[in-house]
Nucleic acid binder design. Structure first.
Lengths: 267, 267
DNA sequence: ACTTGACCCTCACGCGGCGTGAGGGCGCAC
DNA sequence: GTGCGCCCTCACGCCGCGTGAGGGTCAAGT
């Protein structure tokens, strides 16, 4: 026998189990008049008839398609043509939603990449942006050292949005600054002089492309330029003695702003 | 200049415009202590500083990744490691969600197919299931005639879930019934006899695989078998005179249930 | 007749992330 | 002073129920 008239109506619990929904759900559908039991006993108990169950089953099917209850009401109460309309609308909505989530997923992926690898570029793109002496292991080493700091995080957030062209532009500003620093040192500009101070400020601006750099953080960075062989090598590669000169210039600028460079902290 | 210290703090409206969010959103983030303005004027007006704007900008970025506000709080207040964890979780969630929507989209597509074409099978599958004399235009003709009825809708809802194997099984039950009907008529079973009545009941069950068929609807169907050349051809193809015999059998069964077949309506 | 335990009932708040008023103050220009 | 555009604080609404609280009902067992 199919499911014609089994004679016995069902309680909410039984109906819910058969439909694979919760009792609360049936209560809700009753409340909003989407599907009421055809009988209420004197005790107030709901009794769902075979016809009720058919309606409920249809509702369950459409709900599984992700259709809202008001639209389901249109489908089960309205004409087949209205129903088809709702379905087509739902198809369109799903398509858009999927596309949106897909794009969002790519963005998340890029962000994770930035967190984990420091860059979202392929090695080929990196070499193109940073020049032939670029070592692709560099960003990973940076992450090992600083990966758990807030600055790395802010760096990653920005890196996630940058493509090869953006990086090329940044590299240009950085090397332009390096060159200007070298020229100033060559011209015996004194740390603390107007020219040196202006360059220190530009250094802070340029570096802030990576992450927000306060003055006291800049002072610490100056120390590192002198203390860390990798940094020293970079600046002294531009011009011997530049790392030390820049450190002194940064210290002088800090003092001119009322900051004691000897007590500066990374924050 | 970058965005260091522009001197002037912003009002909610200005901040909202720069961030591309609504004022209400900033109010909300203030309420839940996700991002409070660092200054409140005596008038109660909010003033967002440069540092506030940086925090807000970060929040906006993560919000665009679809991350919940509580998780964003973890990201912007917690360590980079916690942030990376949240991002990976979000990546996983997005993947699942996309997969879910994709499957749901396929189901909607199948349902639309069923509404519009009556079947979700390829023509090849249709011929395999329904036999070589099957005409693929048949379901479309059916939709033209009945496509705006509730029965077509219920038929479509069921058809959407059926694959080739399901249809093969249904065809078997239908032709098995046809054969039994023919045998009964051959044996001169009288309409109204126990044997004929049982077969009429089976006919209703078998037919209910398409859509719920009440007794009065069955009576109307019996009329059509006799009146519609296509139906007549089918049953008389099984055995000449079978269409008429079946109609009489259905009428007799209806009378035995207290139904007047002459006033039966399609409902 | 009473108890037990599984079921059933009706409120009513909570969730997430704001949208959308209502009702009223602030600030600047005419 | 008055008009206009900004700002403020409530507070309800959305969507589809989940999750209690507090209490009745029913069939079986003692």
């Amino acid at each position: 026998m199919v499911s014609m008239s089994d004679g016995s109506d069902l309680s909410v619990g039984q109906a819910a189990r058969r439909l694979g929904v919760t009792v609360r759900t049936l209560h809700h559908w009753d409340e909003i008049e989407l599907a009421k039991p055809s009988v209420r006993e004197d005790s107030g108990y709901r009794r769902y008839s075979g016809a009720d169950m058919e309606r409920l089953q249809r509702i369950v099917v459409y709900r599984e398609l992700g259709i809202g209850l008001e639209d389901i009401r249109i489908i089960v109460d309205g004409s087949a043509l209205e129903a088809a309309d709702v379905l087509r609308t739902q198809r369109a909505r799903l398509g858009e939603r999927i596309e949106e989530l897909r794009r969002r997923g790519e963005d998340v992926e890029r962000m994770i990449d930035a967190y984990e690898n420091g860059l979202t570029l392929t090695v080929r793109e990196q070499v193109e942006a940073f020049g032939p002496e670029w070592d692709p292991r560099w960003p990973l080493q940076a992450r090992e050292r600083y990966g758990d700091t807030g600055q790395w995080q802010q760096y990653a957030e920005r890196a996630a949005k940058r493509d090869a062209a953006d990086w090329t532009r940044i590299v240009q500003t950085v090397s332009a600054l390096d060159a200007e620093l070298a020229v100033a040192m060559d011209a015996d500009a004194e740390p603390g002089s107007e020219r040196a101070n202006a360059l220190v400020d530009r250094h802070r601006e340029v570096f802030s492309q990576y992450f927000p750099l306060t003055r006291s953080m800049q002072v610490c960075l100056g120390r590192m330029y002198e203390a860390d062989p990798a940094f020293t090598a970079h600046y002294d590669g531009v011009r011997p003695g530049l790392a030390a000169w820049l450190r002194r210039a940064i210290d002088a600028r800090a003092r001119s702003e009322g900051l004691d460079p000897d007590t500066a902290r990374w924050e």
